[in-house]
Simulated assay, not measured.
Amino acid sequence: MEHQGIEYTVVQTINPSGWKWSFERDGRSPRWGIAFNRAEAISAAQRAISQLLRVQQHE
């Protein structure tokens, strides 16, 4: 999947059950999180990407 030009992944986990999202940017350490369902994971990943891009604009 892609958001604002950054590729991210969303995968279902077994233990604990839920969905994991993750992405990497410019050699920085990966960012990731866990959500209860796929829609929440997608939303969380997109929020994290948007936040990262806002921070990078102000650097």
Results as ranks from 00 to 15, higher is better:
Met1Asp: 12
Met1Ala: 06
Met1Tyr: 06
Glu2Cys: 03
His3Thr: 03
His3Ser: 10
His3Gly: 07
Gln4Glu: 15
Gln4His: 14
Gln4Ser: 15
Gly5Lys: 13
Ile6Arg: 15
Ile6Met: 14
Ile6Asn: 14
Glu7Met: 11
Glu7Thr: 06
Glu7Tyr: 10
Tyr8Met: 05
Tyr8Arg: 07
Tyr8Gly: 03
Thr9Ser: 04
Val10Ala: 09
Val10Gln: 09
Val10Thr: 11
Ile14Arg: 12
Ile14His: 11
Asn15Thr: 06
Asn15Phe: 03
Pro16Lys: 04
Pro16Trp: 07
Ser17Val: 13
Ser17Leu: 10
Ser17Arg: 10
Ser17Pro: 14
Gly18Ala: 01
Gly18Ile: 01
Gly18Pro: 07
Trp19Met: 07
Trp19Tyr: 11
Trp19Gly: 04
Lys20Glu: 14
Lys20Trp: 03
Lys20Leu: 07
Lys20Cys: 04
Ser22Met: 08
Ser22Pro: 05
Ser22Asp: 09
Phe23Val: 10
Phe23Ile: 09
Phe23Lys: 02
Glu24His: 04
Arg25Ala: 06
Arg25His: 13
Asp26Asn: 12
Asp26Ile: 00
Asp26Met: 05
Gly27Tyr: 02
Arg28Pro: 00
Arg28Ser: 04
Arg28Gly: 03
Ser29Met: 08
Pro30Ile: 01
Pro30Lys: 15
Arg31Thr: 15
Arg31Lys: 13
Arg31Asp: 08
Arg31Cys: 09
Arg31Trp: 07
Trp32Val: 00
Trp32Thr: 02
Trp32Leu: 03
Ile34Gln: 00
Ala35Gly: 05
Ala35His: 01
Ala35Asn: 04
Phe36Glu: 14
Phe36Pro: 10
Phe36Ala: 11
Phe36Tyr: 12
Phe36Trp: 12
Asn37Gln: 06
Asn37Phe: 03
Asn37His: 06
Arg38Asn: 08
Arg38Leu: 09
Ala39Ile: 07
Glu40Gln: 12
Glu40Thr: 08
Ala41Gly: 12
Ala41Trp: 02
Ile42Asn: 09
Ile42Pro: 02
Ile42Lys: 07
Ser43Cys: 12
Ser43Gln: 12
Ala44Val: 01
Ala44Asp: 10
Ala44Arg: 04
Ala44Lys: 04
Gln46Val: 00
Gln46Arg: 00
Arg47Thr: 03
Arg47Val: 01
Ala48Gln: 11
Ala48Arg: 08
Ile49His: 15
Ile49Met: 12
Ser50Pro: 09
Gln51Pro: 07
Gln51Asp: 15
Leu52Gln: 03
Leu53Ala: 12
Arg54Asp: 15
Arg54Met: 11
Arg54Val: 07
Val55Ile: 15
Gln56Lys: 11
Gln56Thr: 09
Gln56Gly: 10
Gln56Tyr: 11
Gln57Val: 00
His58Val: 14
Glu59Thr: 00
Glu59Lys: 06
Glu59Tyr: 02
